[in-house]
């Protein structure tokens, strides 16, 4: 408990001090995780929508697979991406290992199934309501997917939020492919792991408190946006 209060005090001191190093770490965390979520949205939203309304063989199997991949262990993803990006791996020539780009790739792999699976669910529900009307209007299947994605946009924010939470919180993948290099690939979570291994538990906890605060701010913004959309009957 003593550690906890020390951590709380330290967290405030860190935030008030706004040390350049802390700002850098938070900035990198956000940059990596939000980039990964953005790419995962570009892939996962259409993928989820196609799984919801598409008609092709293997659709059910693919849905099951995507659902299962939601629980991918970050360390496994990290290891796989490491092996692929390693200088002796197939994409070694790109020299991406131990860079933020490698971390974005790993987190994109982690987050995409979450976004796709949640999108599938949301779009399936909305499609139940829209399907007949859109078909009566003669909307093409691509048009249907676009319409459903747009009209579900505020519900889909929640999917993106879930993905952001996963990305910001995971440490296993970014630690392996980023290497936790100071000033280059050190994020909130890898810094927490490092401080813990240095026995600086209060410092680690303080960083944790800041991370949780960040998550709260991000989700509060999204929920606020959703609530105002709901008032407009858009969500």
């Amino acid at each position: 408990m003593q550690d906890f209060w020390a951590a709380l005090a330290q967290a405030f001191a860190l935030i008030l001090g706004a040390e350049a190093e802390l700002v850098e770490i938070i900035g990198l965390s956000l940059r990596v995780s939000l980039s990964a979520v953005a790419i995962a949205c570009v892939i996962g939203l259409p993928l989820g929508a196609v799984l919801a309304v598409g008609r092709f063989p293997g659709r059910l199997a693919l849905s099951v697979l995507v659902n299962a991949l939601m629980g991918l262990p970050p360390v496994v993803v990290g290891l796989t991406v490491y092996l692929v990006l390693s200088a002796s791996g197939p994409l070694g020539v790109l020299q991406l290992l131990y860079t933020p780009a490698a971390m974005i790739i790993a987190q994109t792999i982690l987050v995409t199934p979450i976004i796709a699976a949640l999108t599938r669910q949301v779009i399936e529900d909305l499609s139940g309501e829209y399907d007949e009307m859109l078909r009566a209007m003669g909307v093409s299947r691509a048009g249907m997917i676009a319409t459903l994605l747009w009209d579900a946009r505020y519900s889909l924010l929640t999917a993106a939020l879930a993905g952001t939470g996963r990305a910001l919180a995971e440490v296993g993948a970014v630690l392996i492919v980023g290497g936790n290099i100071n000033h280059v690939t050190r994020t909130m979570t890898t810094a927490i792991a490092l401080e813990t291994s240095k026995g600086e538990l209060a410092m680690a906890l303080a960083l944790g408190i800041i991370l949780v605060t960040l998550s709260v701010i991000v989700s509060a913004c999204v929920m606020g946006l959703r609530a105002s959309a709901a008032r407009m009957a858009y969500a």
Binding site: E129, Y130, E132, M133, A136, M137, G138, V139, G143, T147, D151, A233, Y234, A235
Partner: peptide, 24 residues
């Protein structure tokens, strides 16, 4: 064209609903 018992309108403004239809 079909109109159903319960109107299924898009989660958009009245004008945007018509815009969507005309685009279609």
């Amino acid at each position: 064209a079909v109109v159903f018992q319960r109107p299924v309108l898009l989660r958009r403004s009245a004008a945007a609903n018509l815009d969507h239809a005309l685009k279609t």
